[in-house]
Amino acid sequence: MRHLTTALAATYAGLLYLFIFLPVIVLVLFSFQDGTLPVPPLNGLTLRWYEAIFADGKLMAALGNSLIVAILSSAVACILGFLAAYAFARYTLPASGLLRGLIVAPMTVSTLIIGLGLLSVLNLTGMRLSLLTVGIGHVVINLPLCFAIIYASMGGHQVNIERAARDLGAKDWQVTLLVTAPMLAPSILAAFFLSVTFSWDEFIVAFLLSRFDVTLPVEIWSMLRSGLDPRTNAIGSVVFLVSVAFLIIMELAVFRKTGKSS
């Protein structure tokens, strides 16, 4: 009986893992397809599609744009989120529940609506669509997340730690820089990394708010118009590998640290 359920469980889990990994395996496998169609049969293995994408100036520019937008918008979201979390955790503000609700509100609204709203106001002000406008949109999306993560990690016991620093002569900026920020480093880093991955992958806002300089998802989107193409497989595989590398760094840097100190 016990063996039977274990076998059933293993079979079920195996099938589901197959379902989960199938598209990724196919994507990576056929990025090496020696032919112009990334579908069976597999004619042979080649690296030429990778050569093609790395030689593609537009694609590489989009990749660079994505990195810049992701890192800068996440940094802004983290700084704003950290400051706001600090304000709400350490001080009593009037209507603080309402104000906190305002900051996390964009999280509950679909990115399509955020993008459309920003687009309509930008049209009104005559501001040109660019990477800057994409970045602004990404901060709007990621700020609630950064705020929520950092706010959740600000416990009451840290109040006394900050008091102790002040008591020992630290000025306000010294308390923030030498005590609060390093103490919250794990959650600030987690918020930053998560924010970077979201921004890196975000499509709708980037699509609506950009024009000539586009981010990688938007560039890949336009590649899709030409149908199945091994070049899309290649760039998709690269993006996946970069994300996984990022995940491993995050796992090692952030979660190991918090695991140790708890």
Partner: peptide
């Protein structure tokens, strides 16, 4: 004056 806090308030980092 300096204070010794109930939860010690040591800087964890």
């Amino acid at each position: 004056t300096t204070t010794m806090f109930q939860d010690y308030a040591l800087f964890p980092h």
